[in-house]
Amino acid sequence: MKKEEKKIISIKGLKKTFKTKVTKPGMSGIFKNIFSPDYKYIKAVDNIYLDIKEGELVSFIGPNGAGKSTTLKMLSGILFPDSGKIKILGKDPSKKRKELSYDIGTIFGQKPQLWFHLPPIDSFNLFAKIYDLDKKIYQERLKNLINLFEISDIINQPVRKLSLGQRMRCEFVLALLHNPKILFLDEPTIGMDIIVKKTMRELIKKINEKEKTTIILTSHDIGDIENISTRLVIINHGQIVYDGDFKNIKQKYLSKKLLKITTEDKIDLKDFKDLIVIKKSKYYIEFEINTKKFPLNKVIDFLFTKYKITDIGINEMPIEDVIEEIYRDQR
C-alpha cells in the first residue's frame, strides 16, 4: 500500500441529535416554557460513514444546519456522538482529545486565535509553549512557515493593524506551528470578500500540497471550493448526499448560473423566452442560464449590445438547488 493511501480518519455510523426547547407563544406559553417545556429533537448528524486518507483535501459542503460543523466538532473531540465510531490516527477523539490536539490544527471561521493587540510573533511564541515545542524545532518550523506564507515583514506589527488577508496568513501559521497531520477548517471563508477568499483558497491548496497536511474544510457555498477541492462531500439533513470528485458535480450541476441585471431601458421578455425567468420588473430581471446551452460570454455580449446595463450580478446556483437536483437524479 502506498503511504498516501493510509487511512487517517474513519467515521462509522455517526449520529448526533440535539435537544432544543420549543418556545410557545403567548402569556400561557411563558409559564409553560418555565415549568413544562416541550423539546424538539433535531438530528444534526444521521448515520454518516466516511473514510479519509492521508494527504486528502476534503470539503464538506451543505446548507446551514446540515450537520457539517457538528461532524467537524465531533472529529475534534469537542462534541460527543450519540452513537457511532470515530477513529483519528487510530484514536477516539472523544476520549483522547488532548492527545490528538497535538496532531490536529483548527481554524474556526470568525473566531481568531491571534492576540489582537499584540504582534503575531507573540502569539506564535505562546503557541510554541502550549504545544511543548522544542526551541530549535520551533525556530526552524517558524522560519519555514514565515517563508511559505510570506509574512516576514508583518510578524512584528500588532494584529489590529493588519489587513484581513494578512491576518489570515498569520492565523494559518499559528494553526500549523505544531506541524499537525490534520487541519480542520470550519467555514474559513465566512464573511470574506472575493479577493480574500481567493487568497484563502490558494493558502489551503499550498498547505495541502507543500505540507502534505490532510485537510477537511466546511462551507455552505460550493463556489468556495472551486479550484481547490479534490474530494467533495455534500451533506444535507445530517446525511451524505454525495461523496466523490468535485469535477463530476461541477460538470453536471454547476453549469447553471444565476444572473441579475438592472437596465436603463425597458426589458423585453421576448429576449428571454428560452431562459428561466425568476423575477422581473420594468428595469430588472433575474434569470437562470445553462452555460452548456448558452455560453455565458454570448449571453452577456447580447445583453450589452441590446440594453444599457447599469448593474449586473452573476451567481452560482445556491447549494440547496444543487442538492435538490442530486436528489431528483437519484430517484
Binding site: K73, S76, G77, I78, R97, K98, S101, Y102, I104, T106, F108, K111, Q113, I130, Y131, D132, D186
Partner: peptide
C-alpha cells in the same frame, strides 16, 4: 455562547 470555546477545547491545556 459564542462557540469561541471550540478554539480552546482543541488545545493541549
Amino acid at each position: 455562547k459564542s462557540g469561541e470555546i471550540a478554539n480552546y477545547l482543541t488545545k493541549p491545556y
